[in-house]
Design a protein around this nucleic acid. Structure first.
Length: 287
DNA sequence: AAGAGGCCCTGATAGC
DNA sequence: TGCTATCAGGGCCTCT
């Protein structure tokens, strides 16, 4: 599911619902996520008050009053659900990003607050939770990550320097979290379409103007996606207003064989597997 | 040492 | 109550 925009929407939702709340109970139904849930996980969370909920790249960072906390990564299929206690003392499902219905299977972790609880669901279990004891430990986790597209550090000079003499194609560069953090397979294709650059182009062959476009469009596409509440690929039956809609704005992703959306372009969208991931592009206007 | 590919896992869908 | 193959929003690890 989640690239930077989707994770940001989850962060915003969590902030509204659980900031300043105290964790009353932690239930682990399945420890075997991408990495095994640490044995001290429950103790680490219990009775802690949530001070802030940040995001870096595709990671949600939950910090307690004492600067300890934990990180959530949603992997490919992780979703967070919210349940309220009603007047009859029964938990009722509540709308939440991308997940209006609580699935029956794969609810691995429950974190309870007063009158509210969040449930982590993840069929493929590529996501994970990781605790940290202080800011230093947290920073260490992200030490080798590249800047986010919105960061000052992600500038023309930085991009030129990193792409120089590199054989690797530009699509893979955008997916490389050591180069830039937060872009995934959907937005990589979209950003390259906006930039009129073919995903297979070798990084070393991009000129200064190409890099400028990538810089500009990375920010543009991700910001538009956040504004639209992220992208929802899966079709849920009981759709409500909380579901992201940026998939309606896809120019190339999952538009194989459809006509290029560019007004003066007569090309069609092609799909090509690059490093085992699908890439979508117009082979006419993306040079 | 940069870059490619396998792999972790379940579910939805298409094609037979 | 079919079966099988393919693909899916990520990223760590290994091999060359």
């Amino acid at each position: 599911m989640p690239e930077l925009p989707e994770v940001e929407i989850v962060r915003q939702s969590l902030e509204k619902k659980v900031r300043d709340k105290i964790i009353q109970k932690v239930l682990i139904k399945n420890r075997n996520l991408r990495f095994k849930i640490q044995s001290n996980f429950q103790k680490h969370l219990l009775k802690k008050r949530i001070k802030k909920i940040d995001r870096f790249s595709k990671y949600i960072i939950i910090t307690f009053e004492d600067s300890s906390g934990f990180i959530i990564h949603l992997g490919m299929s992780g979703t967070i659900h919210l349940l309220h206690i009603n007047k009859k003392n029964i938990y009722t499902n509540s709308s939440f990003y991308n997940s209006p219905i609580l699935p029956k299977k794969h609810n691995h972790i429950e974190i309870e607050f007063e009158k509210i609880k969040i449930i982590y669901n993840d069929p493929r279990r590529f996501g994970y939770f990781l605790t940290f004891n202080n800011k230093l430990e947290l920073n260490k986790k992200f030490l080798h990550f590249g800047p986010e597209p919105f960061s000052e550090a992600f500038n023309l000079k930085y991009i030129l320097k990193h792409l120089k003499n590199k054989e690797k194609n530009i699509k893979n560069f955008l997916l490389d979290q050591k180069f830039v953090s937060g872009i995934g397979n959907i937005y990589a294709s979209e950003i390259l379409f906006y930039s009129k650059i073919n995903p297979s182009r070798k990084a070393k062959n991009l000129n200064k103007n190409d890099c400028k476009k990538i810089l500009f469009n990375s920010k543009l596409v991700l910001k538009m996606a956040i504004k639209k509440g992220g992208s929802t690929i899966q079709n849920f039956q009981n759709v409500n207003g909380k579901i992201g809609s940026f998939q309606k704005n896809f120019k190339v992703y999952q538009r194989e064989n459809l006509k290029c959306i560019e007004p003066k372009c007569s090309g069609f969208i092609k799909k090509k597997i690059i490093s085992n991931r699908s890439s979508f592009f117009c082979n006419y206007c993306q040079k």
